[in-house]
Design a protein around this nucleic acid. Structure first.
Lengths: 342, 342
DNA sequence: CTGTTAGCGCGTTCAT
DNA sequence: ATGAACGCGCTAACAG
């Protein structure tokens, strides 16, 4: 039975006052009912609940958090929605929070890979008075991050921060890159290239470790710039095709997405993987395990890293401590079929 | 008690009062400065700004939205972080909002594919007084969604809702499924199977259209249950391997993820694609275009659908209208290399 | 034991 | 340039 009407407008949501009036009681009593106090008679309780139901009343979290001085919000900032590694971290965070039954809400916001935008986004979160902050793939300086850490318990995932105020959950990128490089060396490769992750979190560490491991093996490292995105892998691969030293026999890509992009270019150029060129990625995103990709890579337990960050923050929100913890996770080599012995 | 390294605690954020006191002016004046009023003398302006800077003051969006009766928040609910289609929609929404310079914040929340959780999540958003709501992959009933539509401008993406209160942005699933099925029929396939999307949005329409198109061609449709996730595709593929009518020559999977999962199982079983079995997906997620996957599929412009939903909502937030619009987008067949003529 | 009144939190706005 | 009132829900103090 649709009530026929002109263009309706959305009405202001009912307030606690509306409920009180309708139930014929005071605001306070409504509040008591909402908070499940036992100082309320059954009679007025049902009356209030009926009024709430009639009006479709929903308490305002805005007003509530103003008086409680707690928003119940955790802010999560990530550089983009499409990143599978970040998505897994977010799932880990959500999972921990839901399991902890704190009634906390993990709010996600995307920063579009732009530092300026990320700063704005973080400011909005701080204005919303989030109780904690998680940053992933952040483009901001340590100093900037430390600034957040002063205001609110802050964690980064996958990003080193040299500050005692921040919870840092990272895998050992140097170790991971070493595993990847050594794997290729042990397969007999010598002309090995690295497509970098550009300004991405941990990319510098991966590159440095690659160079070091190559040097230790007496090999000349080949390094071309890339990014953590597919397109970066594509560009890196194209650069390698045109490279003065000729095509390498193996490539260590900064991450899986980058590796997938590079493979795509190599395949388009008629190269077979791993027959003509071996590839190693980093992250072990779900797609890497597909038969169609089957990428040899370095596993970084994203979901678990998300849980860890969430746990560290929840603990600190409880104590109010400004003292961050660093958790270093050991990466693992996962050998699949994109690498072969020379 | 250790005095030196006394564990610091996070202090309450400074309020407008603190700023006023420090600057030696009234609250109101600080407010005026913040809102960039021109009725403020240069002297007090600089004093206030200095105080703001000293204290690291950040206005509370909570208090502000209480008085303004606008939160500046748009709530986005999606079933999971890992879904590439949803991720693209979210990027589209963000892109529109950022471009529109409304200072609106698109907040994302994940509902974990569980209806109960999704309801809670939506309630939290409504309590936060989001000004509009976007739901994707929702497991809730039309009635439930209509309930949101009564409170706040609400849109769904990829989900039909039979209610005039909701903005609905969908592609024509029946048409898309018909395109996919016809493509296989035209290639000479007759024993074609469909792995369904289970309870996923639009899955019923795709299945019905598949059945209809097959019937019109005088073919017996083979249908096995699946989901919109990779695991669903895997299960569907296993069911087909054990199917009484033997393996089909072609499979139309409910979406790309499902198709990728199915292909993975087929490949593990030693089947070549498309030589032994042709596959069509749905969505055209970025991964589908990779050489390694190169999936024939139905394109659904996720990014653009996100932009559209955001636009419709922003318009309605402006007018306060409760009248939803339905936008039906035409899907397109993208032929790649997972299908071949018999 | 049940219910009410009054005042607060933080930023905005209007009359002064 | 300022004081006072307000928005909405919570809570301490008080009253029936």
């Amino acid at each position: 039975m649709p009530d026929q009407s002109e263009t309706e407008r959305h009405t202001r949501p009912p307030t606690i006052r509306d409920v009180a009036e309708r139930a014929g009681v005071s605001k306070s009593l409504v509040s008591l009912v909402l908070r499940e106090s036992d100082r309320v008679s059954e009679t007025s309780r049902t009356a209030v609940l009926a009024a709430i139901d009639d009006l479709g009343y929903r308490p305002s979290a805005v007003a509530r958090s103003l008086v409680n001085r707690r928003s119940g919000l955790m802010g999560i900032i990530t550089s983009g929605a499409r990143d599978a590694f970040h998505a897994d971290v977010v799932e880990g965070v959500s999972s921990y929070i839901n399991a902890s039954k704190r009634g906390l809400i993990p709010l996600i916001l995307y920063s579009d890979h732009a530092e300026a935008h990320e700063t704005r986004v973080a400011d909005r979160f701080l204005e919303l008075r989030v109780e904690s902050l998680i940053l992933m793939g952040s483009a901001q300086s340590d100093t900037a991050l430390e600034g957040y850490g002063r205001v609110v318990p802050t964690a980064t995932v996958g990003r080193y921060v040299d500050s005692p105020l921040i919870d840092v959950v990272v895998n050992d990128d140097a170790r991971g890159a070493e595993l990847a490089t050594r794997h290729l060396l042990e397969l007999g490769h010598r002309r090995i290239a690295h497509i970098t992750g550009g300004a991405g979190n941990g990319a510098r560490e991966r590159e440095a470790s690659f160079r070091r491991t190559m040097a230790e093996a007496g090999c000349e490292p080949i390094v071309v710039p890339g990014t953590y995105l597919q397109e970066g892998g594509r560009e890196g691969a194209r650069r390698l095709q045109d490279h003065a030293s000729g095509l390498p026999t193996a490539v260590f890509a900064a991450n899986d997405l980058c590796a997938i992009g590079a493979m795509d270019v190599f395949k388009s150029a008629g190269l077979a993987i791993p027959d003509d060129i071996s590839i190693v990625g980093y992250d072990d995103i779900p797609f890497a395990g597909l038969r169609a990709i089957d990428l040899t890579t370095i596993n970084q337990p994203a979901f678990q890293m998300g849980e860890t960050a969430a746990r560290l923050l929840c603990e600190r929100v409880g104590t109010g401590s400004t003292e961050g913890t660093t958790v270093l996770i050991e990466p693992a080599l996962v050998v699949r079929s994109t690498t072969r012995a020379l």
